[in-house]
Write a protein that binds this DNA or RNA. Sequence first.
DNA 1: GTAATTAAGTTTCCTAGTCAACAATGATTT
DNA 2: AAATCATTGTTGACTAGGAAACTTAATTAC
Lengths: 150, 150
Amino acid sequence: MTLASEPTDHTGYWMRMVSNAVSQEFARKVSSEDVTVAEWTFMRALYDLEPTPPSALAERMGMTKGAISKLAERLVVKGLVERTESQEDKRAHSLSLTTEGRAKIPILASLADENDAGFFGVLTNDEHEALDRILKALAERRGLKTTPVD
Amino acid sequence: MTLASEPTDHTGYWMRMVSNAVSQEFARKVSSEDVTVAEWTFMRALYDLEPTPPSALAERMGMTKGAISKLAERLVVKGLVERTESQEDKRAHSLSLTTEGRAKIPILASLADENDAGFFGVLTNDEHEALDRILKALAERRGLKTTPVD
DNA sequence: GTAATTAAGTTTCCTAGTCAACAATGATTT
DNA sequence: AAATCATTGTTGACTAGGAAACTTAATTAC
C-alpha cells in the first residue's frame, strides 16, 4: 500500500482543473470589455433583479456584504451601475444597471455563450448532456444554490 | 427572444458551483490541520518530487514563481518544508518536506479521500464513473495539465 | 417614549494571489 | 576576459475577497 493516495484519483481534482480552465478562458474574454468575471456575475444578477438592495446580491452571489459593497462601488465608478436611496429606510439603497451597463449585458452574455460552447464543444452531445445532468443532480442532492463567481 | 441567455444554461455555471463547493468543504477540513488547500497541494507535489527547485513547483501548480516563493516561505515558517542551498548554482535551492511535514501527508491525504468520497457519494456508481470519464476526456481534449489549486 | 436590540452598508485589517522590477549568479559571445 | 544576455528567486505595489468592528437607522421591549 502507498502512504498517500494520488490527487488524480479524486473527482474533485479533475473538477477543479476543468472549472479553473473554463473560468480563466472566460476571464480573458470578458476583459476585452473591461469587466471581470465577478463584475459580470454581479451585472447579470442585477439584470434579473433590479432594482435590488446589495444584500440580495450578496445572498444570490454567495459573497459577503463587504465584498458586494466594494464590487458595487467599482461598478458605480465604471458607470455601469447606479445607486438609488431608499425613502422608507434611510440606511438602505437599491442598485440598478445604468443605460451603459444594460447595453453591455447582451454583449457579455454572448461572450459567455461563446465561451461555454467553445469550451465544452470538444464533448459529444451525449457526453455534454450526461455532464449537465450529473452536475445538476449533484447541485440538487447537495443543496447547492449560490451563483458561483470564481 | 430574450436579450440575455440564462447563466444556468451554461455547463460552466454548474461546473463552478460544484467545484467551489468541493473546494470550500475541503478547505474547512484541512484547516483542522492548520493548513490551507494551496499549502496541501504544494506539500503533496513536494512529496512526489522532493528535493525539487521552486520553479518546478510553480510549473506543476500553475502558479507564478512569486506566489511559490511566498507559499514556500509560509511553509518553512510552519516547519513543514525546508530549503537546501544548491552547490552547483548559487542562485538556486531545492525544497523538501521536513519530517514533520512528511508526517502530515497521510493525514491530509485521508482528509482528501474522505472529502471526495463524501461529496460525490450522492452520485450512483454509474453517474460517478461517467463524470470521471467525461472530466478526464475534457482535460485530455483541451490539453489541460496544471494541478488545480483553488 | 426611551433604552436595548437588530439590521443595512461601509470600512479596516488581514490573507493570498498576480505582475513587474530587481539582485545575484551563470552562460554565451566575441 | 569582458560584455552581454538569460535564469533563479525575492520583493514591492496592486487587486480581490473574508471577518469583524463600526456607523447609522429602524424596530422592539418595557
